[in-house]
Design a protein around this nucleic acid. Structure first.
Lengths: 307, 307
DNA sequence: CAATGGCATAAGGAAACCTTATATCGGCAT
DNA sequence: ATGCCGATATAAGGTTTCCTTATGCCATTG
């Protein structure tokens, strides 16, 4: 469903954030390279759009109201992923003249690359990264051709002809709405039960569906679809509104699980591994930029395991 | 720091998302209540802005390229918090004629209210919520006056004259950059060590600073500021660039911790409680809408404890 | 080969936005 | 109290952006 109108301009939200940071409209205008009246007008438009008083101008300098503070905090949750998007698209654009060429599978590119890029940027500002995406097979071909310095793919098995190492664990999980029976069940979920319950699944042909079906079939178990959806988001929405239990990558649901919109139900006797594997050439050693990225990834995954 | 220009329009990102969902520009245009050429032009502008080919128009219907898919996924991370912001501001605006009046402290309003509102909307679409914000003391006054049906404040002690119950745990945590020594320390952190280390702190007068100092002083320990910052974000940035260890609410750092930008170091012999407490009138029982919100909160917090 | 659904282009007009110049207002020091 | 200074609002003018309707082209489909 499209956003509810009217939608505030993100640059105005960013400007408001700068006002909060710098303490005056004037300074905020300067930092955004626009004139002071332009900034003043943008903020006024923002207040009109949201129908809220965000700034108190009655004491010389502009002062944020409590509504203003709240909007700034909420805006930061919007602006951070927007920065990630900008970094990601920049990497997609940068075909040549980069110090580090990365090939990544879709899932990795979606959920992990933006965070890595952002931290890489703060840790090593000079580094220019280019990104190529595709499915895991495609990434392996890119690596074999030598068209990328480093790659990230999903899969429990190492590809032949390339060095590889698991850098991050991931797996498919069963998710339900908090109101679903399974969210409060006392007996553990079994693979057999999963086989006889109609499930909300990704479409046939997707990597997620394939891993799930293959693993189940290996155990001689069937899969009964309740709904087949073409996108991760659509699937999450369906499960949130309690259509039934769904299957998705743990990476894809981590934020919803964190704030309680979705609940993970762990089956006791089956698991669906989709670990993330770092891939590099057997002939050439990793370059310095690649090493820096790897170190960064390992720092965070080490901690993630301990939490 | 302001966003890197050029910034794509969020409504265009939302439109692209609809194209992915509905399979054609035309349908997406209809769902956004604009003409098909307007949609076509917006998407073209988006492609120009990002300098990426997002759609393949060479086969009749528009088909997303791999870059297009990636942009859609990244956009969803932007659009979800933007929806939260819209819901939040809507609640701030809705002064009268609502079924549920909520009073919340700043921290609760920032980090918890948007998620609750979104889930409330899907679970009970008819419910109109209004929100009043302030510090915990202010919220208690609002509740005492009967100007709100239900309130959320921070603090380990129950306010007098009102019924209350802890619905969510929160506490202050010590955070460091992943590259900081403490992220890999083998010996546990002690309160005494915390007292002699210069720390990145919120400014004097903030709730965070107050809880931290009071708890430390009760143990006869001092606090040495290395940097004093006026916003949560500024503090996080400083700690991320390894200025030193910082002190913040766990709620405020959860997303950064999750993706490894920050690391929590748990002191072994001290804790800084800031639990979230539900508050209601002793005279009037909770109404039906308030009960629905409470049930929703307890569903998610139950699960959060188990994870 | 005709029909259909989908997308792009064109033209015209409305709305949004930015810049420079100027007025107003609050705070602060003398 | 008064005058100065920094900050913000208002005004005017011009450019750019964006939308809608009308129309043409193209691919797929039966």
């Amino acid at each position: 469903m499209p956003l509810a109108e009217p939608v505030p301009d993100v640059r105005s939200l960013d400007l408001l954030r700068s006002v909060a940071e710098l303490g005056s409209i004037r300074q905020a205008a300067i930092s955004h390279n626009i004139s002071q009246p332009a900034a003043s007008m943008r903020l006024r438009t923002l207040e009109l759009t949201l129908d809220l008083q965000l700034l108190d101008r009655s004491h010389g300098r502009a002062q944020l109201t409590s509504a203003g503070v709240a909007v700034v905090r909420w805006s930061e949750e919007v602006l951070a992923p927007l920065r990630d998007l900008l970094l990601g698209t920049q990497a997609l654009r940068a075909a040549g003249k980069t110090n580090l060429r990365v090939a990544a599978s879709m899932t990795v590119a979606e959920y992990l690359i933006p965070g890595w890029l952002q931290r890489l940027r703060t840790a090593h500002p000079g580094l220019l990264v280019s990104l190529q995406m595709g499915n895991s097979q495609h990434c392996i071909e890119i690596m074999t051709r030598g068209d990328a310095d480093i790659g990230f793919i999903e899969g429990s098995r190492a590809p032949r002809g390339l060095s590889s190492r698991v850098v991050r664990s991931d797996d498919l999980v069963v998710i339900v709405a908090p109101s679903h029976d399974w969210a409060r069940r006392s007996t553990p979920l079994t693979a057999k039960e999963l086989a006889v319950t109609p499930l909300v699944l990704r479409e046939v042909g997707s990597g997620t569906r394939q891993v799930f079906e293959t693993t189940m079939r290996l155990r001689g178990l069937d899969v009964v679809p309740l709904l087949e959806l073409g996108s991760t988001t659509a699937l999450k929405s369906a499960v949130e509104s309690d259509a039934g239990p769904g299957i998705l990558s743990r990476l894809a649901v981590q934020s919803e699980v964190r704030d309680g919109r979705l609940v993970v139900v762990a089956p006791v006797d089956i698991s669906f591994d989709r670990s993330i594997r770092l891939v590099w050439s057997k002939e050439r050693p990793l370059g310095v930029p690649a090493e820096q990225l790897v170190r960064l990834i390992e720092e965070s995954s080490t901690r993630a395991r301990q939490l």
